[in-house]
Structure formats: C-alpha cells, structure tokens
Design a protein around this nucleic acid. Structure first.
Lengths: 344, 344
DNA sequence: CTGAAAGCGCTTACAG
DNA sequence: CTGAAAGCGCTTACAG
C-alpha cells in the first residue's frame, strides 16, 4: 500500500451526518435542532447537543447559504474617497461599533471600499449577486450613485447620516445635527460671547447643512443679525479648519468664539489661532462637533458635541437586520450631548 | 388563478444552467470557462462569455465554496484590545492597504476583532470551521494565544510584525525596526545633539525591543556610554508619551534630543515639552517613528521614520495567498526611510 | 415528533 | 474538447 495521500486525510470536519449518527437520529432532526429545536423531543435535542459538543461540530456556512439563499454576512461599504475616511476618527469609531454589534448576531462583517466610480462598478456584481444580505452604507455626499445600485439590486441597506437628495424613503440613522449645533451655539452665547463665527462642513453633506442651520437659528433666536463674514466653509479636514480660521480672523478680527462643525477642523482652527498669537479660550472660544478622539488630544481639549456612535452603530445594525427580515425603511434620529472641556 | 406569489417571483439570478442553455453547451463547459477556459474551444468560450454578459451571470459563491471546500474570503483579525488599535492611525493604514490588496484578488475581507479571551473563544469555531481561507493577524504582544488557535485549526496566517516568543516558524511581514531606529539616532547625533534620550515601546512588543536596541547600538557606535536615566518606556499611547517625557525632563534635564518609538507618543512628548516651557527643535529635537497621519498634524510636524505600510499590507496579502496555495511560511523585512520635517 | 427525499448551484474526475 | 453524472453539506416541505 502506497503512502501518497496521508496529508489529504486532514481530519475532515464533522458534518451533520456524523452528528446524526452519534445522536442516533436523522439529519433532518439535527438540522431542526440547529434551527432552534422546534418540533424536536427533549430527548433528541439533548442527544444532538451532546453529539455536537463531542464532535466539535460547526455548521458549514456555504452549504447552509446555498439552500437558504442567504449569504449570512453583511457589508460595511465605504463609498467615499478612502483617504478622507480612513483618516477620519469618526469612521473608525463607527466601524468598531458595527463590528461589535454584528458579532453579537454572529454575522461576519465584510469591509468594502468603493471611493471611485471604477471601484463601484467593480463591486456592483458582488452586490447584485447578493453575496451579502445587506449593506451598512457610509457615504455622506449628495447624490451617491451607490444608493441607486443598491436599490436596483434590491439589497437592504441603511445609511449612516441622512442621504441628501433622495426622493424615495431611505433608511438611515443619524445624530440630531441641528439640535447639537443649537446647543453649542447657545452655550457659547450664554457664556457671554458676543461675536460667534462658524466653520461649516461641505454644503453637499447633511452635517454641513444642518449644523449651519442650527447655528443660524440660535443666533436669530438671540436677536443677532446674520453676518456673512462670520461663516467659513471647510471640507472636514484638519487643513481646511486651519485655512478657514485664518480667513475668519482676517474677515472678522473681532470674533470671540467659533463653532466648528467637526473636531478635526476645530483642531486645525486651534493651530491658526495659536499662530495668530491669540489664546483659547481667553481670546477666542472654540466649540467642536463629534467628540472624537482628537477632542481630548487637542490642546486645549475641545468643548464639543458628542455624537452617540455606539448607539448609531447599534441602531444601524438593528435596522438592517429588520429590513433583511422584510421590514420597511425607517429613519432614526439620536440626540447629541454637550461635552464641556477647556476650549470654551 | 390567484395572485398569491408574485413577489416571490423576484427575478431569481441566472445560474450556470441558464448560461449553458443560452450558449448551447453543457454546464461543465461553462464551469471550465469560469475556471480560466482551459480545454475549451475558442468558439465555446466566446459563446459562453456572450451568454454571461447577456444574462448578467455572476457565480454563486456559496455553491462554489461547497464543492471547492474553500471559503473564498480572508479574515483581518485584530487580536488586541480594541480601543488601543482603533485609536492607532497605523492600524487604519494597514487595514486600508489590506482591503485594497485583497480586492485586487477578488477576495472579500472579513473584519474580526478578538481583544479579549472571551472573544477569542467565540471566534475559534468560526476559524476552525475554515469559514475563511486564511488570516491576516494583527497582534503585537508576546504570547498571543491566537497563534496557537490558528495553528491547531491548520489555518494559514501571516502576522503584521514579528510575533515574540514563537518557537516554530511563523510567517510575518515587518519593517526593519532596528535599522529605522539606528537611522533616526544617527541623524540626531549628526545634527549635533549630545544628550539623546528615548521613549521606547512596551518590552513585550517587537517594536519596543528592536527600536530600543537600535538606539543603544547607535549610541555605542558613537562612543556614548549607556545612561539609564535617558530611557523611558511607554505603551504607544499619546498619554504615555506625555508622561514619559515629563519623567525624562525630570531625571535628565540636560537632554537635547529624544527618539520616540511612535508618532503618537511623540505627539504626547511635544505637549510635555511645550508645557515645560521648552521649544522644539531649538531646545529639544524630537524624532518619531511610523510617519502616521499624526506626524504631519503635530506642531511642529514630526521628523520621523516611515514605515512602508503599503508594501507591508501588499506583502502580507501576497504571503497569505502563497500559503493558502500550499507554500511554507516566510519572513519579510522591509526597509524604512527617514523623513525630515521640523521637529528635528 | 420524525425520517426519507428533493434540491440549492456549482466543480471535477470520468469516459469518450 | 465535451457531456453526463456524482457529490459538496445543508434545509425543508411532505408523509406519517
């Protein structure tokens, strides 16, 4: 007898048939136990569980997938230019939250990036073929074609943040941007600040729009006339925060506070203020948004608006699972919280 | 005729059988075309490709998986306390690189975190059941039990950074920590600095060990006696960099340079130096390690050692695929590069 | 409550 | 170069 194939005898993992044999039942019964044990006698259940433990059986997902027509996994789809997002501390927080939430449902998270049109075309077949059961979509800019793709593929999805410019109902989970902005501006005004400027986010993102609206509203409610010179628009990057702050310092040298639509931009603003020889918060109070890790790392640490990332990711996962189970779309808005540190 | 099941008629995606019918061949032939078209006549190939295009056919991965006994996916496994890693800019860079490299091979990346022993036990069955074909393992601390699990499961894996304390051969890809450290310290000394301190990483990580070794070596080569007071040990966090710097400033007030084993810690050191009323680089030159995004965001921007993350992630993926194809383990060491900015 | 059987969509020797 | 057929490991009506 030759010895050619001993390696191939690699302990093939046990199948449902092995379990059935050990438990003295049919494989149908084993499968029923796997599905939750309905319509199975306690005795059979126990026997099957014992066999599973003894053999170290774990279900073959491919086989299950083939018959249930479900992938048994979910995609985390980043449809933004990669550099921007991987650099954004909020993204990391969200990704972590979703991974954890999904793990609790035993659903593997497949990470997909599709920042360019070429990449989007590339993953389209993957999505259309339903190689995942649903998608957690991160895409903050207006008119992202990914949403159309997902609709066409008839694939459940839920967005992080309100997708701008969508006519039909879309599931999304977001923090209350407007209220958050209002709370920060109210805080600055009530601390005695008189000339409150703002660095807003891009106009084609919900955060860029709503946080600016909140700023304007609160100023109006305090009887303060709108002043264009007090508004600069960045792109959420640290560098843009710095540039915007320089611009504000020039166009309105008398400002004594600034509400910045993201912590990263606020950190950039801090640098510009320092370079101008001014002190925070003595000369200028700086309020951020997000309460991301940069808020605590900044010098001075940022007073900011906390986005409830853990709840956001949990709700995104919950909504997605509900949709996969056939529910319709829903919108979830979560409250924010003012976090006072040293910058304002 | 009742109208009960129209929704269920949801255009079932075409199967290989549909393609075969349209192309006028058997499904065996379609499958062969899918596998690369060996032993198929040009005419059949063309017919099959045309049918695939026309029907928008895409292979059912579960079905393929079931017969090939391959998962067709790879895990990115983070076996570190999550907070630490998701906060580390290097991690994000690595994750992005691996996602991109894997996408080029049409392999989905499954993100798994297993920072605690409980989590490790939880994912063990997933891994043992070969629900992925291989693992990209991120785990920098000595004696991570995950490696044992992977070996037992007979699952190919490659580590990011040298795993400490492994007796048997393990595949890993790493930057040349020692040479990088030597280059930085050489640069500091040749810039005229006389009292060069260091903030090292934890002793149970390869970076903690080898970067400290490089520091010592270079000092010795310049005839400088070792001085314990010039060495502090952090944990790679920003806060620890700050604390270590304070300690150094106390134990050796005459230092004029410090080599810090990570940019994040270096950024913390910057804060401590500023608080002490000293200037960088005039009073103290600060050299970092990583060239992560914090290096450019720091004030002043950090002179640092660049880790070639793109190459690291590419090589990790390449090694992993080779192992999945049956190759043995290998070690890959990549050179670093000195990046001079303003801090030194 | 249970077993026998069909079938999910592919790949791969096997014969020709 | 090609087709017919077995088989991957599971789930789920169907009958009893």
């Amino acid at each position: 007898m030759t010895d050619t194939a001993p390696q191939r005898r690699m302990k093939r993992p046990p199948t449902i048939l092995d379990v059935a044999a050990h438990a003295g039942v049919s494989r149908g019964t084993v499968s029923r136990v796997l599905q939750g044990g309905h319509n199975v006698s306690p005795a059979s259940q126990e026997a099957v569980h014992a066999a599973i433990r003894k053999l170290g059986y774990v279900v073959n997902r491919a086989a299950r997938s083939l018959v249930t027509q479900r992938a048994g996994s979910v995609a985390f789809l980043l449809s933004e230019p990669q550099e921007r997002f991987f650099e954004d501390p909020n993204f990391t927080t969200l990704l972590r939250g979703c991974t954890t939430a999904l793990a609790e449902h035993d659903l593997p998270l497949i990470l997909i990036t599709a920042g360019t049109e070429a990449e989007r075309r590339r993953i389209a077949p993957f999505l259309s073929a339903h190689h995942v059961d649903g998608v957690l979509l991160v895409s903050s800019h207006r008119g992202n074609p990914m949403i159309g793709h997902l609709r066409q593929a008839n694939l459940p999805f839920v967005c992080c943040g309100k997708p701008l410019g969508e006519r039909d109902a879309v599931s999304y989970v977001a923090a209350n941007d407007r209220e958050g902005a209002r709370a920060m501006v109210r805080y600055l005004l009530e601390s005695g600040r008189k000339r409150v400027a703002t660095i807003a986010g891009p106009r084609d993102t919900p955060g860029g729009l709503e946080r600016l609206d909140g700023y304007r509203e609160m100023l109006a409610e305090h009887g303060i006339a709108h002043d264009k010179r007090l508004v600069a628009v960045g792109d959420y990057s640290r560098a843009s925060g710095e540039a915007c702050m320089e611009q504000l310092l020039t166009s309105a040298p008398d400002i004594d506070a600034v509400f910045v639509a993201s912590d990263l931009m606020a950190d950039g603003a801090l640098a510009a203020i320092e370079r101008a020889g001014l002190r925070v918060p003595d000369d200028i109070a700086v309020g951020g948004f997000d309460d991301s890790p940069v808020a605590t790392a900044a010098r001075p640490p940022l007073t900011t608006i906390r986005q409830p990332w853990n709840r956001i990711s949990e709700m995104m996962v919950r909504q997605l699972l509900a949709q996969i189970d056939g529910e319709g779309p829903a919108t979830v808005i979560l409250p924010t919280e003012l976090v006072v540190r040293e910058s304002a």
